[in-house]
Amino acid sequence: MRTFTPVTVYGLRFTTPLAAFFVLFFLAPLLLLLFISLHNDTALTEFGFSQYTKFFTEGFALPILADTLWLGVQVTLLSLVLGYALAWAFVRSRPSVQTVLIMIIVMPLLTSVVVRTFAWIVILGRQGILNTVLMNWEWIETPARLLYTRSGLVVALANVQLPLMVLPLITALQRIEPNLEDASSILGASAWRTFFKVTLPLTLPGVVAGCLLTFAASITAFISQSLIGGGQMLFMPMYIYQQASTLQNWPYAAAISLVFLVAVMGCVSVFNILGRLSKGYATT
């Protein structure tokens, strides 16, 4: 009998073209970014850590990083509340309703992010729909400032990223055995208690996955941050772009991109650890 290679396995050599492509056009540029960031001057003549020292000691950049991550947390929490309820309602809907709902959820994900952001300019503007409605109901007398505010930005971003949160939650909720919830309520637990003690813990892997996607997307949402945040807010993506493009300070831009990258990876690892823990929690 000849040496047996399972016909269903194609062998790692099929990955060679992509691996070569990634090494050349993904890994090499990132390593170059690291190399460039280790220069003290824009002419790249002197090695040194001064760009990193500048970032961590100057007192301007570090708050921007912290603020960007905090923005991500705020957006993620709001999306989670809205998204969880939507996913919960989804799995309790009739199949025909589900077909429509899933279209409503997926559609924004495929619509251009510029279009979705633009919609929020229309909604939050001084002559926008929200101000019109509030004034018609006589809740406010003069138009409120909603665009170019932090809360406006958080709401808009939470909405733009909502589908990323909802989809993993739906998958997680669909996996729950309905009898578990029933069992809990038969045992005398109140509906709220069942929700927090049974349903929510069982869907933790989905929660973690959704939060990870939403968080990563909202802190890097360059267009939404700049158009809805306005000129008085500065987050890491815009900061990197300004340094690289307007000021042509490549070493510093490279350094702050890498700091941002490491910070994001750090957050992702935290999420991943949480995800692993929650899986253990969900199956026991």
Partner: peptide, 28 residues
């Protein structure tokens, strides 16, 4: 009562989410 309040809360938030998902497209 507890069951009802949970349902109202979750369905309400879900309805809000759907409005938020649809509104931008419609407004544009």
């Amino acid at each position: 009562l507890s069951d009802l309040s949970l349902r109202i809360t979750l369905w309400g938030l879900a309805a809000l989410s759907i409005i938020l998902l649809l509104a931008p497209t419609l407004v544009v």
